[in-house]
Nucleic acid binder design. Structure first.
Lengths: 345, 345
DNA sequence: TTGTACGCGTTATCAA
DNA sequence: TTGATAACGCGTACAA
């Protein structure tokens, strides 16, 4: 017997180990390891032999042992502020799709829009030595940012772009988006255009800033047109804030909502109050969820490429893991204004 | 020196290890380990001493090493068929909330409603030796079921209940739900009640069966009233299938939709076609998403306790991990019919 | 291309 | 209550 392999007695639950496979295949453990991870470096004959034994024994590599030995877990940590928010649900879908047949796994962390939760999750992720990290937004706390900078793995910030990436970035400008939607309402002939926003996380704040810039540019800005809350956004919150907005500014003739759920709520509220959309009130949303197209009337919205962001963020991470730095560290995917019935005055 | 601890040179990235802490605190490595995991078994004095060093060095236990040594990862694997589906997004939210301050982590796997993906993900999860598994539905493939039975950890099946749990179960009867919603439409005076369903996964199939049972019971069943597709459900698909349904059965006077997105799509389509809801057409959905309440008209739906399911499934898993088997292996959370304007004829 | 020796950081076991 | 020793299962470094 030329191999020094021996099957030891087990502490754990009898699962076959690499040593069992090696023994049965008559090769060294390391050859089994290579046959699985870098098949090209093992002769065809041995490889086949090994794979047969792997099948026969139902051998599955132990990820924990692998991670310990290589000081790197085959995990990509993903931090999102919400999973019930359709937008992030689609980002996550893009991430899973972009992963495709990679051997890596995604681990989702939900920060609930709280930066201390973000720091905690980051620490937990880092304790696993992830292969890469994907985080939402660009407003990390100083602590979180410092953790990311010392993460010793590729980092992709998604959904937004800004001047100082930790590493890589892919998203779009929420400020420009807010400005574009507002300008469209102005060009459509609306004048008393309200901003309605819930949650008001940093991205919504920037949309509001874009709205404000466009309104001031046109000499139309009025504080009373802005109605916001930090409470979570939802369809019913859209209805509620629309009622508030009308109370504050009875003459308003349009509403730019910080997302599509809110826009839908505003639309329903208009129905209920007998206000015609778009003739009495124009409505524009943000993100362009699938239902905006089919609503009655259909709702103007700013399409954001969130699925694409998810997909490409993973691609960037995988490339970086493989050692290929992207030509551009910052990718602006932009947005697209989709004009529909709700703003055709 | 009474301790045999020595700090070795590092291959990994210089993170402090338990040996560093032990050395500095003048104790054995195992004592540090215990101080962190079972503080009660370490004297107060040593514990304080150790914790101070932990703080000072910023020591974080390596999860991979811990998992390897204990043959158990502090991970709960969760398998859901979708994340963009609001229902599962809320289940997942409940799961995260139920986890609370537990040291365990959740790892989400998305099966995309495909049972081969379920098997693959199960294998990946099992290769980590998870502390527990939570899986959606009760229709696992024989292979998946066998993997679960040999998983050697608590298993919770969620969203449905059935006769033969792998281990534990929490959910409700989709058959009864479908029956209850349909009976309500019948009692409200509707006769030509269509069933409109997309995706038609096993749970939707059972809703359909419940619909059929109620219709046959009332002598109202007609094949032509059923319109389904395996394509994914969405608001626009609701509109599309409603048009199909009307083409197949022009005299239909109500629609029971297999979920709320579909119901909303049907509602919008009625608006577009000038059909009054609820007088011309009654509409009922399933799940009772938040927006059903605020839609115009508000939409009748069957409220399901999906957040609660997530929350309690984790509680059951945590209890089982701690060795406390529940009194009842099967928990039926039921549902609640919420009657609103859309079916008030 | 293949194998040997050893380290990865922690916990289980058993002894003190 | 505490510690020495030996796993845990695999990958790295280096040698053959």
């Amino acid at each position: 017997m030329t191999t020094g392999v021996k099957a030891r007695s087990r502490r754990g639950g009898g699962r076959p180990t690499i040593a069992d496979v090696a023994l049965k295949a008559g090769v060294g453990a390391i050859t089994v390891s290579r046959a699985l991870r870098e098949p090209d470096r093992v002769s065809l004959e041995l490889r086949r032999q090994i794979m047969a034994v792997v099948e026969e024994l139902g051998y599955v590599p132990d990820r924990n042992a692998r991670a310990l030995a290589s000081a790197r877990a085959d995990v990509i940590g993903v931090l999102v502020p919400s999973l019930t928010n359709n937008v992030f649900a689609e980002v996550v879908r893009g991430i899973y799709d972009g992963l495709d047949q990679s051997h890596l796994q995604v681990q989702i962390g939900n920060t609930h829009y709280a930066c201390n939760a973000e720091e905690d999750l980051l620490r937990i992720f880092l304790s696993q030595r992830p292969s890469a990290l994907i985080v939402s937004g660009i407003d990390q706390s100083p602590v979180a940012r410092s953790l990311l900078e010392r993460a010793n793995c590729p980092v992709v910030q998604i959904m937004e772009i800004g001047p100082e990436p930790v590493d890589m970035m892919i998203g779009f400008s929420h400020h420009e988006g807010g400005k574009a939607a507002t300008r469209h309402l102005i060009e459509a002939g609306y004048r008393r255009i309200a901003f309605i926003g819930a949650r008001m996380d940093p991205r919504s704040q920037r949309r509001l800033a874009g709205y404000r810039a466009a309104m001031e540019e046109a000499g139309l800005f009025d504080e009373r047109l802005v109605t916001t809350t930090i409470r979570p956004s939802s369809v019913s919150m859209g209805s509620e804030l629309f009622r508030e907005a009308i109370a504050r500014a009875p003459a308003l003739d349009a509403a730019f909502c910080n997302n599509d759920d809110m826009a839908l709520g505003a639309l329903f509220e208009c129905h209920r109050q007998g206000r015609a959309v778009p003739s009495d009130i124009g409505i524009a949303g943000f993100n362009d969820l699938e239902m905006m197209e089919v609503a009655c009337p259909s709702v103007t919205s700013l399409r954001t490429h969130r699925y694409e962001i998810g997909r490409r963020s993973i691609a960037m991470a995988l490339a970086a893991i493989a050692g290929h730095r992207p030509a551009e560290a910052i990718v602006d995917l932009g947005f697209e204004l989709i004009v529909r019935e709700s703003t055709k005055r």
